[in-house]
Design a protein around this nucleic acid. Structure first.
Lengths: 227, 227
DNA sequence: AACATTACAACTGTTAACAATACACACCAA
DNA sequence: TTGGTGTGTATTGTTAACAGTTGTAATGTT
């Protein structure tokens, strides 16, 4: 029976397909911050019409990867210091709730999934792409949000995730030492998730995020506002 | 000079206009829970084409007022007990952050605006529509979210607000006594907002929301899942 | 009963043409 | 110079008709 989370990302609809394509392009740097995205040109390049592309644009705007100017076009977002602050302060409000509920609803399968990720993190230091490390980090937290069984909360996380992805990549460039923190930090999170001490779990989550926030912010030389 | 928040709701784009129309229709009960919304039919009725209507549908889905079934159509959402739980647990995570930041950034204009609302609440008991009471309640909290100077947080609130609106209306039917709580509760919120005691303010917000949650939930006879 | 087939209804995607918008730039007046 | 006014142009916003796809349910077969 196929019911694994790994097979889910099969896109429904053309717009979603475009979203993942553009997301990949932005995260990989093929589309740089501030770059203009012209509807007609992009539609031609992707081999789709403007309708689905416009729908993709609005999704990407919700996820903070693209900024839309009415009648002026779409631009790849440029994350400012304030954006980092917003993303992390919001995450700091959301993730304790996720953890609290995940402690209630998490399945053994999900715990195993988390363990796999943590184990892989423990092997960091050997050949490890920043992209892979960032994806592991995001996937760990994604599983927790999934485990929280809270649709609306998961949606919030979905909108934040691509922006956090960018920040993780930015951070890793400036802080190669995260490889040593990642396994320890996430092991601790997994431990408290398995515990029954809700208050302690929330405290650990907050501490974890505050550390991440400090690291990211320290490597952000206060850029200008978005395009 | 016209730069008042009251004149802002001038919609940009046709889709937004459709959203407010449909929102009004749903909140007023003209479109009942579970009712089907056929694209072509509705587009004709509204005098618009399918493009903007589809865009409006996706916005309404984000706001939890409409549920979309791929290739099967759109339906007015039917809020279940679990939905109430999700909305209020999420709000309980968001609003303390809003309050905390609002304490930092709130302007005297915004404080005055809040005072006006609270004063109007104090006159409840005389002729007062449920719709008006609900709007005052929402507007009070809206100002706080605005004052928090946090785009992403405000977006979350924007998506939650219509659902809370529905719940307020549902609640008010079953709990006419809220007219006595509303002025007191919101006066207290305004007081702590003006204070410098962050921890106390957060506690008051949480207490306020828990009371609201209890009242709403008590009048929800556990319906089935959404359409 | 279990499964493949079919028909249908509705949504999804495409296209091309037209309308509306916002910025830029030149122009003019003070 | 400064500030307002008008016009132009590129680009998005909107429409409408058509073609393609999907999921459902009825139908038929084993």
């Amino acid at each position: 029976m196929i019911s694994d989370t790994r097979v889910l990302p099969i896109n429904r609809g053309l717009a979603s397909e475009i979203v993942t394509r553009l997301t990949t392009a932005i995260l990989s740097g093929q589309l740089g911050p501030g770059e203009r995205l012209r509807e007609e040109e992009l539609a031609d390049a992707l081999g789709v019409s403007r309708g689905p592309l416009r729908e993709a644009f609005t999704q990407l705007e919700r996820q903070g990867l693209v900024v839309l100017h009415r009648n002026r076009g779409a631009y790849v977002a440029r994350l400012s210091c304030e954006d980092v602050d917003e993303v992390y302060s919001l995450r700091l409000a959301l993730e304790p709730l996720a953890m609290q509920r995940a402690m209630q609803f998490v399945t053994t399968d999900q715990l195993a999934e988390l363990q796999v990720i943590v184990d892989r993190m423990a092997t960091y230091g050997t050949g490890m792409t920043e992209q892979e490390a960032a994806q592991d980090d995001l996937m760990f937290h994604d599983v927790i949000y999934q485990a929280s069984k809270h649709q609306r909360l998961y949606e919030c996380w979905t909108n934040l995730r691509p922006q956090i992805h960018i920040m993780l990549l930015t951070r890793n460039v400036a802080n190669p030492d995260f490889r040593y923190y990642a396994p320890r930090g996430h092991t601790e999170l997994l431990d408290v998730l398995k515990s029954k001490d809700e208050a302690h779990a929330i405290a650990v989550v907050q501490e974890h995020l505050r550390i991440a926030y400090d690291r990211v912010l320290s490597s952000y030389p206060s850029q200008k506002t978005r395009d």
